[in-house]
């Protein structure tokens, strides 16, 4: 009976199994194989063992791309977490035109990244951009954003604040699920607003924070479109990220073997980071089921 059910179950999910085999397992397996070949896009692959992996260890560009990507992750994720929780709290207050505020805050998140990056490229423009004109109006001389490694990175990271929509909405829904009596009880006990936030609300939504952080990590680790459009990776590779190196190695330098190596390593790194986060997160996340 159970086995017959298994047959039925597998039949129902068979479209996914086929897709999984063809568009996930096969590419991953091929990727592992290509990562052990010398293969230029325009010629046939030749097996070379672990040569590409050895090269990766000593590759200066890999070090730069890794550092940039890590820096980006480490700054972006806390920034986005704080911003999206703050916005969610603000938008959860009872107010008139609530739908309007939510739609306005969410809207930029549905825009195509190519278009959003294009708009921001103009907004950051040293001479025409509204950012520097605004700074000028308050008496601050804006930087030439894309001329300095630091400012270019800052520009790219700041742009993320406009795509907090999905995370913000998830927090919004989870705030709705925080039991009201907990907060009221704390409030009666004289706990301040901040105290209630830190000791009641945040622990209650901590599983959702973990979820969003993991999604954020996966997205941040493959950042590509925004720097590709805004800076092209410069100056001095200051905004050159891992995915851009994968793309360049494959389709600009024609080095598919090495590009596959970079891709496999990227996948393993994301996998390990996610597992690590889950393990660490488990110790801090408060699950309601575990309430005494």
């Amino acid at each position: 009976m159970r086995w017959r059910n298994t047959g039925t179950g597998l039949l129902w999910i068979s479209p996914w199994i086929v897709g999984f085999a063809c568009f996930t397992i096969l590419p991953l397996a091929l990727g592992v194989w290509y990562s052990m070949t010398d293969w230029t896009l325009l010629e046939a692959p030749i097996p070379v063992g672990t040569e590409n992996y050895e090269r990766l260890l000593g590759d200066q560009v890999v070090h730069v791309a890794l550092w940039n990507t890590l820096l980006y992750i480490v700054i972006t994720i806390p920034l986005l977490t704080v911003a999206s929780i703050a916005l969610a709290i603000l938008l959860s207050r009872p107010a008139r035109f609530q739908a309007l505020w939510r739609v306005a805050v969410f809207a930029p998140s549905v825009l195509p990244l190519v278009a959003l990056a294009t708009i921001f490229k103009l907004m950051y423009d040293g001479e025409l951009g509204v950012v520097n004109r605004g700074l000028d109006a308050v008496g601050v001389q804006g930087p030439e954003w894309f001329a300095s490694e630091t400012w270019a990175m800052v520009a790219i990271i700041l742009m993320n604040l406009w795509v907090v929509g999905p995370a913000m909405v998830i927090y919004l829904a989870s705030l709705r699920d925080v039991p009201r009596d907990l907060n009221e009880a704390a409030s009666i006990d004289g706990v301040t607003w901040w105290g209630r936030l830190v000791h009641v609300t945040l622990p209650m939504i901590s599983p959702v924070i973990l979820f969003n952080v993991i999604i954020g990590l996966i997205n941040a680790a493959q950042v590509f479109v925004v720097p590709y459009i805004m800076t092209g990776g410069g100056p001095n590779r200051g905004t050159y990220f891992w995915s851009m190196y994968v793309y360049d190695a494959a389709f600009r330098y024609g080095d598919m073997g090495y590009a596959s190596t970079l891709g496999i390593v990227q996948f393993l790194a994301i996998l390990l980071l996610t597992i690590g986060l889950l393990l660490v997160g488990r110790r801090f996340v408060f699950y309601r089921g575990a309430m005494p």
Binding site: L28, L30, G31, G263, F267
Partner: peptide, 15 residues
């Protein structure tokens, strides 16, 4: 859902 597109991009291109 965790597999970044750039990782499978090259093999997918070949397929």
């Amino acid at each position: 859902m965790m597999i970044p597109f750039p990782v499978v991009m090259v093999p997918l291109f070949v397929i």
